[in-house]
């Protein structure tokens, strides 16, 4: 089923998506927000540029975007998959608890902020390009992988990554020697076992966007983990 959304508001789009078939192609998307918010099934393919909060509270649906996406992709996502054949704006995967986000290009500020995990729910964000500041801020769980494949001069991540991180793991395809991490995390070169553990996600990324997994893995990766899951434990005195 093809849904041309050129003249539709976001609430009309979601209504039609809910009523529509399991496999829907959206065309003519131009900035409409909240597409597929809270959807637990369906496969949605989007041509054009969806607006903010694409797949917010997503609960199992699959979204494929043939272009860029804007801010707050996968906000508070619980399950499902979002694939972006382009770059994304700020705060992608805010507080996501499950599911996977694959981005071919770059991400803006605060990607993976306050990402969590719980038991079998372990969210994953793979970013092919580079990231803005505050990557993985307050990260409490899940896996963030940044591959840095865009060929500009920028560092793989801008300032203040991992501030307040207290769970999960972050991988940068870089030696990260020019990156300042806060004192509450440990950054070290990823071992072969580390990379084995996330190879599946990198493989999936390569399959989606046409890269060679072995070539991507043939580089130095830096693994960042928090030192404590109770980062503020010592700060208080009972009064």
């Amino acid at each position: 089923m093809v849904l041309d959304v050129k003249d539709l508001q976001y609430n009309e789009i979601n209504e039609q998506l809910r009523a529509g078939s399991d496999d829907i192609q959206i065309t003519g998307c131009c900035g409409q927000r909240f597409i597929a918010a809270g959807f637990s099934d369906k496969k949605i393919d989007i041509s054009g540029i969806p607006g903010n909060a694409l797949g917010a509270y997503l609960n199992g649906a699959t979204i494929n975007v043939n272009g860029n996406a804007q801010d707050a992709v996968g906000d508070t996502m619980n399950a499902g998959k979002i694939i972006i054949h382009g770059s994304i704006g700020d705060a992608a995967g805010y507080a996501m608890r499950g599911g996977e986000i694959y981005v071919q290009g770059d991400a803006g500020y605060r990607a993976g902020i306050h990402m969590k995990e719980y038991k079998e729910k372990r969210p994953v964000i793979v970013i092919g390009g580079k990231c803005g500041s505050f990557l993985g801020e307050y990260q409490a769980g899940g896996i963030i992988i940044v591959l840095g494949l865009s060929d500009d001069e920028r560092e793989i991540v801008s300032n203040f990554p991992c501030t307040g991180m207290h769970g999960g793991v972050l991988y940068l395809r870089s030696d990260a020697k020019n990156i300042d991490f806060p004192s509450n995390v440990s950054a070290a070169e990823a071992s072969a076992e580390d990379l084995d553990a996330v190879k599946g996600y990198i493989n999936e990324f390569c399959g989606l966007f046409g890269y060679n997994t072995d070539e991507i893995l043939n580089a130095t990766f830096t693994k960042v983990v928090p030192d404590s899951k109770n980062p503020y434990k010592q700060m208080y005195v009972a009064n």
Binding site: R97, K116, E117, K119, K121, A140, G164, G167, N230, K233
Partner: peptide
């Protein structure tokens, strides 16, 4: 929906 023993931080 967070692991036992992990701080629950609301920014």
């Amino acid at each position: 929906m967070i692991p036992e023993g992990s701080d629950a931080i609301s920014p």
